[in-house]
């Protein structure tokens, strides 16, 4: 075994101070980091079915917009989020519900009857009536909502994180 008698008083104090200082730094630092990242962690996920009206009111073959708002609590504030979805009713009452959020960077797309496409104003992306990318930067088709038909009333499933 090596002799441990060559530790100087100054060296010993320095080590102890460095060790104690590190502990104190961690004790003080961790709460501050936790405080700053607090809203980014946790958060409640919601999963709900939203009625979007009678299916009969939607024209066949033309994407039709349905808008609604949902509110949620962010910190000290009640935030109201607006949603718009495009409902496309087929000839046999099969339904496709598309989100109007561009899959590129989240701007809102709008449908034009003249061109029969969805256009995103931010980076000039085009989607066809089924949400398939025709041109521009989006990496994938428009997102689709799960939908169900209860005795003629159409509902869509909205998932929020």
């Amino acid at each position: 075994m090596a002799r441990s008698g060559n530790v100087t008083r100054r060296g010993f104090i320095t080590s102890v101070m460095a060790f104690a200082g590190s502990i104190m730094g961690i004790v003080v630092g961790l709460p501050i980091i936790g405080y700053l990242v607090s809203p980014a962690i946790g958060g409640r996920k919601t999963d709900s079915w939203i009625p979007v009206g009678k299916l009969d009111t939607y024209p066949v073959g033309v994407p039709t917009v349905f808008s609604f708002t949902r509110s949620k609590i962010n910190g000290w504030e009640k935030t109201t989020n607006s949603y718009s979805v495009y409902v496309l009713r087929g000839a046999n009452d099969e339904v496709k519900v598309l989100s109007n959020v561009c899959t590129h960077l989240g701007c809102r797309v709008s449908y034009s009857k003249d061109t029969d496409t969805y256009a995103c104003p931010c980076h000039d992306a085009r989607f066809d009536r089924n949400g398939v990318v025709l041109s521009g930067p989006p990496p994938r088709p428009l997102d689709q909502y799960e939908s169900k038909n209860d005795n003629g009333t159409l509902s869509i499933r909205v998932l929020e994180s």
């Binding site: 709460p31 501050i32 936790g34 405080y35 990242v37 607090s38 809203p39 910190g75 000290w76 504030e77």
Partner: peptide, 24 residues
């Protein structure tokens, strides 16, 4: 938030909603 309708609520949030807010 230094506004009359949010100041109290924002502090309430610091005390109960934010990790270690009560400590800070």
């Amino acid at each position: 938030v230094p506004s009359p309708d949010k100041a109290y609520d924002s502090i309430e949030y610091i005390m109960t909603g934010v990790a270690f807010g009560w400590l800070i």
